[in-house]
Simulated assay, not measured.
Amino acid sequence: MKKIFLYILAGSLCFSACKKDDVIDYYVEPEDINVQNNYDIQAIKKFMDENYLDAQGNIKAFSATDTADDNEKKLSDLDYKTLPSGTIYIMRNGAQPSTTDAQPITEKSVIKIMGRGYSYLATDNNGSVVFTAKSAFLNTIDGITLPLVDPMYFYVKQSVLDAATTDAAKQRSYYEIAGFKEALQIFSGFNDLPSETSYNLQGVIIVPSKAAFARNAHYQYLGQSYRNKSFVFNFQIYGSKTRPAGQD
């Protein structure tokens, strides 16, 4: 009986120890914003090492048990580019519009975007920096399958700024995700694909918090705070048009 009790106790301690490794301590915002920026860099690298793109361009996590993805390339092994802001983009081969179909994406374009976007918080989890607090920001693939037209986080209309009642809300940076906007203009949009067209995602944009809202006042999309949050967008631009006069 004594041995059985000892085995149970040992098993309980082992379970507790193993479980503790998976528990993420309560997030404490680093006093120095450079520490958070460094967390972002490390978490993004880990994310890119642990994920790949499937046949439709969806970001997928490598499986620890299924060998079907063993020959897939990590995001970090693809031809990714890093912009001065720290924003990373991947332009997927074979998924871009033809030269005759391509529509430029400019600073004021009206875009029609299909895809998924998530926000993440980079934290130090017992010495390992990882993305946590994953939260949906954009999803036009699962559930509602209609592209989103003219999101404010790409371009906010002047009328919105003019109607704002605080100094912070009168600034474009209050609404727009600068790194996303910067990187998306490197891509081209398709020529107004019908909304029911099956998606073939063009690529990925990863925005560290310093190129998003950092610790500044911002519009709380979906009622959430994005302080210190990084973003990952996995998308296809179904259309990009010149903004009509009077709608800027």
Score class of each variant (00 low, 15 high):
Glu29Ala: 09
Ser119Val: 02
Thr87Arg: 13
Ser198His: 14
Asn228Leu: 08
Arg116Leu: 08
Thr145Leu: 06
Ile59Gly: 01
Lys73His: 00
Asp150Tyr: 14
Lys229Trp: 00
Ser195Gly: 07
Lys181Gln: 15
Ser225Ile: 11
Arg116Lys: 14
Tyr89Asn: 05
Gly223Thr: 14
Met48Cys: 04
Glu29Thr: 08
Asn38Pro: 07
Pro147Lys: 14
Val232His: 00
Glu29Phe: 07
Asn51Ala: 02
Gly223Tyr: 15
Tyr238Phe: 09
Tyr52Thr: 02
Tyr118Met: 03
Leu13Tyr: 05
Lys74Arg: 12
Leu9Phe: 13
Asp150Gln: 13
Ala61Trp: 15
Asp49His: 05
Asn126Cys: 07
Gln220Arg: 15
Ser159Trp: 12
Thr166Lys: 10
Gly239Phe: 12
Thr132Trp: 04
Ile111Phe: 08
Ala169Pro: 02
Asp54Ile: 02
Phe233Asp: 00
Ile90Ala: 05
Phe131Ala: 07
Gln42Ser: 12
Pro151Gln: 06
Leu121Phe: 02
Ala168Trp: 04
Tyr80Asp: 05
Met1Ala: 11
Gln236Glu: 08
Phe187Ile: 07
Pro97Glu: 15
Met1Arg: 12
Leu6Ala: 04
Lys73Met: 00
Phe213Cys: 03
Ile205Cys: 02
Gln158Cys: 10
Ala68Arg: 11
Lys74Val: 01
Ile111Ser: 08
Thr165Val: 12
Tyr238Asn: 04
Leu75Lys: 08
Leu13Ser: 03
Tyr80Ile: 06
Gly117Met: 11
Tyr226Arg: 07
Val232Tyr: 00
Lys157Phe: 10
Val28His: 08
Leu201Phe: 03
Lys74Asp: 01
Gly246Ile: 14
Asp21Arg: 13
Phe190Cys: 12
Gly117Arg: 06
Phe5Met: 11
Lys112Glu: 15
Thr100Phe: 11
Ala17Gly: 10
Phe213Arg: 07
Asn93Cys: 01
Leu161Trp: 12
Lys241Gln: 15
Gln42Met: 08
Glu107Ile: 11
Leu222Thr: 12
Val28Cys: 02
Leu193Ser: 10
Gly143Glu: 06
Asn71Ile: 01
Tyr89Gln: 08
Arg243Lys: 05
Ala17Asn: 10
Pro84Glu: 13
Gln42Lys: 13
Val28Pro: 00
Phe180Asp: 00
Ala183Lys: 06
Val232Cys: 00
Leu75Ser: 02
Leu9Ile: 14
Tyr153Thr: 08
Gly203His: 06
Phe131Ile: 06
Leu6Lys: 10
Phe233Val: 00
Met48Lys: 06
Ile105Thr: 05
Phe233Glu: 01
Asn228Ser: 10
Lys73Glu: 00
Glu182Cys: 11
Thr166Pro: 05
Met1Leu: 12
Val130Gly: 03
Asp40Phe: 02
Lys210Tyr: 04
Phe190Gln: 10
Gln220Pro: 15
Val23His: 11
Asn234Glu: 01
Pro104Trp: 09
Thr166Asp: 04
Pro30Asp: 02
Lys181Val: 07
Tyr238Asp: 04
Arg92His: 04
